[in-house]
Design a binder for these strands. Sequence first.
RNA 1: GCGCCCGUAGCUCAGUUGGAUAGAGCGCGUGCCUCCGGAGCACGAGGUCACAGGUUCGAAUCCUGUCGGGCGCACCA
Length: 564
Amino acid sequence: MAHEPLETALKAVLKEMGLGKASVYLERPRDPSHGDVACNIAMTVSREIGKSSREIAEEIAARLELDTAGIESVEVAGPGFLNFKLSSGTVASVLDQIVTKDRTFGRSTIGEGARVMVEFVSANPTGPLHVGHGRQAALGDAIASLLEWTGWDVHREFYYNDAGTQIDKLAESVRARYLDQTGHDAEIPEGGYHGEYVSKLAEALVKEFGDRFVEDESERAIDHIRKFSVRSLRKEQDRDLSDFGVRFDEYYLESSLYQNGRVSSTLEALRETGLVYEREGATWLETTKFGDQKDRVMVRKNGLPTYFLPDVAYHMHKWARGFQRVINVQGSDHHGTVERVRGGLQALGLPAGYPEYVLHQMVRVVREGKEVKFSKRAGENTTLRELYRDVGVDVTRYFFQMRKPDAQMMFDLGAALDHSDKNPVYKIQYAHARMSSIFAKAQIVPEKIEAGSADLSTLTEDHERQLINQLGSFPDVLERAAENSAPHIVCDYLEQTAGAANAWYHAGNPSRNPDLAVLVDDLTLRSARLILARALQVVLRNGLTVLGIAAPTRMSQAIKDDSA
RNA sequence: GCGCCCGUAGCUCAGUUGGAUAGAGCGCGUGCCUCCGGAGCACGAGGUCACAGGUUCGAAUCCUGUCGGGCGCACCA
């Protein structure tokens, strides 16, 4: 909570009382009857100085100079809380700030412009993106965006595993279908891919090259099929992501790590640490030295590296490119790799917690309580594209973002398809659009509403006061969400804000309570409320922007665009 | 068996250095609603915070153990 005058006043009083070292922590109480700001300092120091916390609180309250701190009143409550009621001018002054800062309200400089990489999606080009990738795309993009809003220089990266055995399996699967379609017997290999898309790839191959690869079993031929398949699946993934509103600054190819020698040089560097040994024909790294559960194989008996080695090479290169902070967003089924990759990096001298991980759990798409898997295309999984085609991009993104990453989530299609205020996305967008509608009715251009153009101390209604406090906490919310890599905090906040906004709006229904309407006859009050309405709109819009979701000025438009 | 994550209202989930009477949405109940834009608004019922101990002035939150669910434990990724 930023309330500098109060904070300095409190610190001064504490110093007088010989408690200069204590750190002051202000919070906004949940219960409005507890005032605008609360402080628990009396409790935290009571043991240290051996006085009851109520006594201490009373003393602080008595010594405080209310006026200079912008306080209307203070009271001691419960076990020793100090509850402050701010003067209405202090409360409302934040509105001027919001309107002035406009699109930058909520931004901070905590990151100090330092570089940070967010790596996410990183799907193998072996099939279409499914809903799990969608959750990751929405989360990763929002986390990246939160970092931008809090002052970091963010790089979004996608890592393509285009060099491993999975790709070979894909090529073999496509080749099998290809042989099928050209009238030859063939079966998809063990562990191969069975989705309809494999047949489609084979079809495309036939169309372009006829039976040219039927007899040819050379490495060159299979390589051709592999490249053809990967190229077309990558194209499809790129399209699906870009239509989902997700862009990357860089696509990093695993194959490049082999081509430019980073894999072999990483192996050499690891050997020099003395933590590498040979056993049963394979090459191992002592990752247990760094807390891993067991040592890991880097090079297999057959001479080929496991994925572990290029992973270490890749992350060393992230560091070398200047990213001292990296956040990897991955499915929690990869959590087994976390300790081993970090172990490999520590062996080479990188810090222990590098990189950071946000691991998200699986998604289940349900309709009326039953799980749905409606994809022909991908075999088992529902594809991301099918999902957002049906429920819209905004809703899909929001639903993925509104839950904590580290819990399994239910994606409820019924709730997603609801176009009323019961759907949180529409509820928020509606609140935003309503403000536009007010401005239209008043024939005002919202951008022209200026700070300082009204006496904000006239905003004294309960709904208004609560709403103002709510709006003022937006920067803190972004900060906390960014710190915890937790976009759902923003979702919660926006939903609450929209709820408060709608309550305020409806309370001011002109047919019932004309004196509570924004467009009241009293012009002083009217201009103050217009500033509140504008501030509200700015905060809702900025919050939606952080999440990569549209802030429409008319709802019919939003719903139409969304399901198009 | 070992490791990571989760267990909060009928359902889906929040719960901000450990703080006040544990919250929201949906669903349910009651009342209002020809409005600055609607299936909207107001109010209400509904909880042994999985269980048992411990730390603390204070625990949903921290520690230990138990039970339940998910994921991972490859010379696969």
